[in-house]
Amino acid sequence: MRMLVTAVFAGLLTQAAWTDGISSAYTELRASRDCTTFDGNNFGQGEFARLVCPGYRGYPVLLFASDLRQSLFYGFPPSDLDRLKLESFGSFNSTGGTIEWRISTHHGVSTPFAAIHRWYVADSPDSSNQIEILVVAKVAQPDSTDGCTVGLVLATGRPDAIEIARGIADQEARDFVCGQDKRIVVGGPMPEFDLHDSSAR
């Protein structure tokens, strides 16, 4: 009997290890199909547009576009969108159609704390050559609305880029202080990445 109890207890511990921890989920981002424009128009034509898109289990994704550049905010934004400190690459860019959400599960409650998103970026402002960059972002929660870019990983020519991005997400995103902590950059040269004026029309 004691051996049976021990085996059951070990099984429960194994189950807990699988159910409590960090995992990934994936959502699609197809702006023309899934998103709603709430300001501006002609998304995809290089003109000003603001869109809200579905993310992971009720977490929204905000997409801001102007002048063939995009900025994204993952999670719950402040009520005043003009307070958002949006970031983007200085070169022309666009984002991929899949977002990986890093999710922390404890006692049956799952919370997305980071998003990993592949961007396609011109390697310089006057170039038509594109490189791929994984952007790691902190997901804004309903009670904090604190979201920003935590890390940038050059993915072109780097087979292990996604593992590096997941490591940055898991180790840094939850405690990252937006506007204070310095983002992590892996690989280079990296195109300029800074605050972007999403209100420019």
Score class of each variant (00 low, 15 high):
I131H: 01
E132D: 14
P112K: 08
V109A: 10
V136Y: 01
S88C: 01
Q70Y: 13
L86W: 03
D170R: 09
S88R: 02
S104E: 14
D175F: 01
S66A: 14
L63D: 07
D123Q: 15
S110M: 11
P77K: 05
P125G: 06
T95F: 13
G108R: 07
R174T: 14
Q130W: 07
G108K: 07
V186Q: 11
F113Y: 14
V61M: 08
V185I: 13
V61W: 05
Q130I: 13
F113V: 03
L63F: 11
I116Y: 04
A115S: 15
G108E: 08
G97E: 14
G90C: 10
S91L: 07
W119D: 12
K138F: 06
I103N: 06
A173T: 08
G108D: 08
G55Q: 01
V61Y: 08
L72W: 05
I103D: 08
L154F: 04
E172K: 11
S94Y: 12
A169N: 10
R83F: 02
F92R: 15
N129Y: 11
V153N: 08
D181G: 10
A155V: 04
T149F: 01
N129K: 14
G58S: 04
L81F: 12
C178L: 08
Q70A: 10
I133N: 10
K138G: 08
G151W: 06
Q70S: 14
A165Q: 05
C53S: 04
I184W: 02
W101D: 01
Q141F: 01
S110N: 09
A169Q: 07
T149E: 08
L154Q: 12
P159A: 05
S88G: 15
R118S: 09
H117L: 13
D67L: 11
D82M: 03
G147W: 02
L62T: 05
